[in-house]
Nucleic acid binder design. Sequence first.
DNA 1: TTGTGTGAATCCCTTCACAGCG
DNA 2: CGCTGTGAAGGGATTCACACAA
Lengths: 212, 212
Amino acid sequence: MSRSISESTIRRLSHYLRALESLAATNGETVSSEELAARGNTTAAQVRKDLSHFGSFGKRGLGYNVEELRRRLREILGLDRPWRVALVGAGRIGSALYAYPDFKRRGFECVAVFDADPAKIGAQWGDTTIRDVAELEDVVRREGVDLVILAVPAEAAQELADRAVHAGARGILNFAPVRLRVPPHVAVEDVNLVMELEALSFHITRSGSNGA
Amino acid sequence: MSRSISESTIRRLSHYLRALESLAATNGETVSSEELAARGNTTAAQVRKDLSHFGSFGKRGLGYNVEELRRRLREILGLDRPWRVALVGAGRIGSALYAYPDFKRRGFECVAVFDADPAKIGAQWGDTTIRDVAELEDVVRREGVDLVILAVPAEAAQELADRAVHAGARGILNFAPVRLRVPPHVAVEDVNLVMELEALSFHITRSGSNGA
DNA sequence: TTGTGTGAATCCCTTCACAGCG
DNA sequence: CGCTGTGAAGGGATTCACACAA
């Protein structure tokens, strides 16, 4: 289809999908770009433009069929198949993510958990045994892991990313505050909690009544 | 100074600050926009443009004084003062955040933790007692809470946001997958982990060799 | 009539290129 | 010289506005 879909468009597609799913029960048949925009982030024109990059899913004068648009969005986002996820780092963030119910609900299945700490290796999380991170490559290969969640200290992140990629991982969700270097066929998304707080700090400081 | 600083600029300022902090020890005196760009996300021109929105901190032919630029960036981001943070939701994500060492290091101090679950209320996390969320307004007011971290289910998020804002909170870090409605003087940053995974899914699906 | 799909216009962000200061 | 600070150019992304299909 088309080239170069922007990162913001992708985010909005996720929003639309979520809106459709909460709509499926309540509303009956169709949504307009207007309704979708109200529940998402944005304007009706933006919704239509976003969708137009992938085809023409609507009916003029009517709107979009909820069920069909939902299916198409899942296809577009690649959610029409299960994803095999490995979690690297069994610390606090790792454990929160492991139990995050929305992941499974969306088809992201955690098939392995790793840590470097001998005190943690061998422990059980539900039915998952925490493995030595030394086994990373083996397990990624054997289990066909697609995505790796890196919840490890900054110093360890690049090396672990390299190893996961080398073993076949195609995407990395990175919680470490470093910019990872990866080959072009590998996708990386960064989550940096401190940065989010700093953004809040910035906005409040600027909008505040203090001229400092 | 100027108006309308973009969200991406703010993120980059955070990057620059982090780069400077790791530099302060190793390097001696000055950095060029080139070096800063290499460690951050971006290009030398972008670094200079970003900084130029806030003043002229560099010396031509020399670069930026590391220590001074660090100080200015902390000022710009509003990090030259402590922030009082309340954590709402003592679940797994909440507990991971509470212990997140980088928060304190950057001046974000968690002064209260709330939950609605009677089984959790009264429990101790370090020296913090988990409070009944019914006390939210009181405590936010009494403790002078600036920022609220919402790590609660989607259904509860908007109501809790309203209450926190009403009690004086100026910023919200929102982990619930809903778009919060807040007055214009309140800043919101969303963290949506499922969306990040979906973005990975999208990229991999598109770049993949499978035509499906 | 309603609401999509889409070129055209607009706005904003990034990149370029260079004047000017140290 | 070297490197910043910045107007101008370029490129993307949003918004506008309307032809057209149901």
